[in-house]
Design a protein around this nucleic acid. Structure first.
Lengths: 192, 192
DNA sequence: CGCGGGTTTGATGATGCTCAAGCCCGGTGG
DNA sequence: CCACCGGGCTTGAGCATCATCAAACCCGCG
């Protein structure tokens, strides 16, 4: 269960076996069942989670009861509401398991300790934060400019894993379109 | 011109007058005219800019020639394509002045020097990056869930400055709706 | 006075949503 | 082994929202 994390770190920074083990000790392994929530809107997010197996989603529910997915987190993804974690503010988002999953959990306090202990681990997180921002900016741009059909084509090309592992209704909510529209788009594609 | 930067930094981190002056020396003051471009899609972004006066936008142009605005940068904002800066990749975005503006420009090399010299300056940038991500995530969520009318109401409540300083056509492109729709929404609001 | 950028208004149509019904398929229990 | 159930997906009809295209308007400025 820790090996996924170790591989992840190893492929990103120069680090000794000893340090890898030290890092591992900061994380608590936990298992969650499909449909189980790790965080609900209004709660303060106490942990970050590293996904070593499975798949989760982070989403927001609007007034009309519609869900809007901000992130799918597969293996080697980090999930959690960083803003809530660092500032102790109630989160705006839910985090829920889509599959039975195995996670490595770390609290704010331990994370800060770890940043002190292993500076390169912190650097890794800073770089991650940078990449996440770029990705999100790209998604923003596509959300603004793409039609429903283009959005589907784009996800097929760039994130096929999502289509393979996530119910289509959630894919639709990630793309910002209705289930029905997504279904019709898929039906059209087949006709060619 | 430097005083805006100094105030900005001073209100965010503990820092000496000496260090503030040292930081200032790393920045080159430049002036740009309305409609002048600092960066065009395809170019490698060589600098970050701090806005000490004026207003810029960062945007992307899609195939159909429509513009999609990712950021308005007013006084005390940073603008530039960080991804392009750090990785020397061609940028996907344009950066253009909306008003005659005064900027403080810094190159990647100088920025890295500065990070070395003044660690707290780097910490400030890391925190900024974190905040930017949270803001963007919030915008993403709103873009997915709000109707055109709700988007306008939201920007009135939370970013009225945009409405005061930016042409409505650009506000529309920021919100992901057409000029005409925005105009009609405004007309409706007046009727009440 | 006329020009130009920005905004508004109107008519029309496409896109995508909503609601409702039906379908498919895998799992469960009789 | 079959019948039933439920979750997820599809299909259809009707409608709301919003984009598009075209024209007019407004106003500051040369």
């Amino acid at each position: 269960m820790y090996s996924v994390l170790k591989n992840y770190i190893n492929s990103r920074i120069q680090i000794s076996e000893t340090d890898l083990n030290l890092i591992s000790e900061y994380f608590l392994p936990i298992k969650v069942k499909k449909k189980q929530f790790l965080l609900r809107e209004g709660e303060i997010c106490k942990h970050l989670w590293f996904v070593s197996k499975g798949c989760l989603r982070m989403f927001k529910e609007d007034r009309k009861g519609h869900e809007h997915i901000l992130l799918f987190a597969f293996e080697e993804y980090w999930v959690g509401d960083r803003e809530s974690v660092v500032s102790d503010k109630p989160s705006d988002y839910h985090v829920e398991a889509i599959e039975d999953s195995e996670l490595l959990q770390i609290s704010k306090e331990k994370l800060n300790d770890l940043y002190q202990q292993i500076p390169s681990f912190r650097e890794m997180h800073i770089a991650l934060q940078q990449r996440s921002f770029n990705k999100l900016q790209e998604r923003m741009q596509k959300t603004l400019s793409f039609s429903a059909e283009e959005k589907y084509a784009d996800i097929m090309n760039h994130q096929p894993e999502i289509l393979h592992r996530v119910p289509l209704s959630m894919v639709a909510s990630y793309l910002g379109i209705s289930r029905e529209t997504l279904s019709r788009i898929r039906a059209n594609q087949l006709k060619r």
